[in-house]
Design a protein around this nucleic acid. Structure first.
Lengths: 351, 351
DNA sequence: CTGTTAGCGCGTTCAA
DNA sequence: TTGAACGCGCTAACAG
């Protein structure tokens, strides 16, 4: 109802100046007599004073806010990353402005723009479009940015990535070690560094073991329509690509999905067609999202330290904000094989 | 590197006043000659001017930001709601400041505080602690709040809820209609209006059909430890409570879980113990999160319009912000039975 | 149509 | 230890 109370209102009540009130209520190190300090705090309480951060932020040119740009929070992969970032931000007294691009370039540009206008102190981004040229814009504006998950090659930028190639190699060689030779790779479009890396790992493993893959064992979906991106869409392409695979003359004995959501689609379709997992078909996923432990059979997959990646990125960013210049600009987190129940040994006679 | 450019810098370059520049660049309706307007825009472009919203916001006393407080974004139930809110916010030119309380009262209070300080224009909250008394605080500060999902009784507040009681009734009577009489209810602690409602619906359905439930068929977990709340925890309690149920002399023939994550735990444990779903045990969930379609067997559940709830709440809030006083303060969304494959008819002789 | 002035709420000189 | 004055960047009121 009433006008918001400001430091001037308090100053008037205690016969002091706004400057003194400010010094007390912003916990400044500036000396103020204990008596006065107490009086001010008491009145502030009575008047239910709440500081207007816009004033402080404008003055200090510091919004105490960081921006986070990701494809979609409804994707459990990203929600875990965000959780990690948020925790670090909170511990540093910062807030997070979250932006979901839904894979739209337009939206990503728009958000980038408004984040700058809102004077965020830093930016953590998992982007499909960010490139070297765009970075200079941020540097010019003194905004620190940390890129995550999707590596930007040759850019002098802080980034924390994940070794997708090695992960792809691990998954594939695990299947090979279990006796599989006919290994399909089911994936969303190879338009991102991460997926390209995983695919490369798949190919390298096959080559190292002297296996020549059939071309039809690489199943790439078309680009998803905007809007229905996310879990449901990936699940759907997992199903669709599996149908194609099953209609092949030369069926694979194992399927490697480029992420867990797609793997769920693969398993679901196999179930639908009465093909037992892992008895008749082995399946391996990628990312180790929480749900992988909850389905039946529990999914064998490649562990991706999502939460830690968020924390890492957050810590890196706040180090930068504090001026702790680090000489390591690039961190690459490592994959880890998580064996569960969706992969089975293939006996020689079954090959 | 260089100092950020302000409207004054532009004004100097074009020999105009800052006011004129402001009028042009903020798309004010105030008349400015086309010539001048063009010149200003050109120079703004050259200098790569980007407005500092803090200045505008302080002046206008409007942060163009709304706050959203929920338990955790990593819970798919909430991430869908947030997606709905975010869409509406974006269409209205607003940003969302997201806060995850992780079920901690302290954190919720802390966030509430900082949101006020950051001068959010409105608040959408799914809270466990919000009560009538706290609301006056917001009203006093002219902050519009819309409460979602967890109804606050007897409060003169805008809220958009869901009929959990009816949902509970639906789920239970569906099981009854399929011939079940021994129906267990597996739930997280009944400390929230939503869960209490669901439980009440369960009891009422049983009573209407003249079924006296065994006390042991109500299985309530202890409170979860902080931090490990969320999907994994709920999954775990689903498993644990199922173990208890199976050790009973009088086993139920169907299990009703208070949400889908718990239902996943139930099914997983049943699988582990070699009990077939739905052949030997029917299971029904609640919420209809995306994953329910992705597991095997697909989960029969009660549909909760999460995304729509988010959109509804967002629209309601923005109506308030625009001054469109509505006379409906309370909306209750309706449940819907989603039949899939986890419930089977129980024949008479099996009872 | 344009410019001058004032002030949003706060923190920081500088002087007392 | 305190206060007066100024300015962060922007917009609204008023005057011309």
């Amino acid at each position: 109802m009433d006008k918001p109370v400001t430091i001037y209102d308090i100053a008037k009540k205690v016969n002091a100046s706004a400057a003194t009130v400010s010094r007390v209520l912003s916990n400044s190190s500036y000396p103020v007599s204990l008596e006065m300090s107490k009086k001010i705090r008491k009145v502030a309480e009575e008047l239910k004073y709440s500081p207007n951060m816009l004033g402080r932020q404008l003055k200090k040119n510091n919004s105490m806010t960081i921006g986070v740009i990701i494809p979609s929070i409804s994707n459990p992969f990203y929600s875990e990353i965000v959780l990690g970032i948020e925790e670090v931000a909170r511990n540093n007294g910062y807030h997070v402005l979250l932006c979901n691009t839904h894979q739209s370039l337009e939206l990503e540009h728009e958000y980038l723009q408004t984040l700058i206008e809102k004077q965020v102190n830093g930016l953590i981004i998992s982007s499909v479009i960010l490139n070297k040229d765009m970075l200079s814009e941020y540097i010019r504006r003194k905004i620190n940015v940390v890129s995550i998950d999707q590596m930007i090659e040759d850019a002098d930028i802080y980034q924390i990535g994940f070794d997708y190639r090695k992960g792809g190699y691990m998954a594939t060689s695990h299947l090979i070690a279990k006796g599989h030779r006919k290994i399909a790779f089911v994936t969303a479009p190879l338009d991102r560094p991460s997926r390209k890396g995983t695919y490369r790992g798949y190919l390298e493993a096959l080559e190292d073991y002297g296996i020549k893959p059939l071309e039809s064992w690489l199943q790439v979906s078309e680009r998803g329509e905007e809007g229905i991106e996310g879990g449901t869409w990936e699940f759907a392409i997992g199903k669709k690509l599996t149908q194609r695979l099953l209609s092949l003359e030369q069926r694979p004995t194992a399927i490697f999905a480029c992420n867990d959501m797609i793997a769920f689609g693969v398993i679901n379709e196999l179930n639908n067609q009465g093909i037992e997992v892992p008895g008749e078909m082995s399946v391996i996923g990628f990312d180790n999202i929480e749900m992988t432990q909850m389905i039946y059979p529990p999914l064998t997959t490649i562990g991706h330290p999502k939460y830690e990646m968020g924390r890492f990125a957050g810590n890196m960013l706040f180090d930068l904000l504090k001026g702790v210049e680090s000489n390591i600009k690039e961190v690459v987190l490592q994959p880890k094989l998580i064996e569960r129940k969706s992969v089975e040994v293939l006996l020689d006679e079954e090959r």
